[in-house]
């Protein structure tokens, strides 16, 4: 499987230039009183709905930026490239 991603700095590039940083789950939760379960749920758990979802991608073989892209795991396509 392969597809292309749009880096906000470099433009459309081959998938192999990128690393996936997983689903967008929001900023790190406040740690005061954070239960272990809540932490591991945030840090480890992923859901992969067959619908467009925001994800973090790293342009490791390029400019080194982390950016958010919307990908649909059902089709393996970036939705609204660059948008």
């Amino acid at each position: 499987m392969t597809f292309m991603l749009t880096c906000p700095i470099c433009g459309r590039r081959e998938l192999h230039e990128f690393l996936c940083g997983g689903q967008e789950r929001g900023p790190r939760p406040p740690q005061e009183g954070l239960s272990a379960e809540a932490h591991f749920r945030y840090a480890q758990f992923r859901s992969i709905p067959p619908a467009p979802q925001p994800e973090w991608w790293y342009h490791g073989q390029g400019c080194g930026v982390w950016f958010k892209a919307t990908r649909n795991p059902a089709t393996n396509r970036e939705e609204r490239p660059g948008g």
């Binding site: 940083g21 900023p27 973090w56 790293y58 080194g64």
Partner: peptide, 12 residues
């Protein structure tokens, strides 16, 4: 290392 720093501060 660059990837690590930027990943863990990406929301900030």
């Amino acid at each position: 290392t660059v990837e690590w720093f930027r990943y863990h501060t990406r929301h900030d």
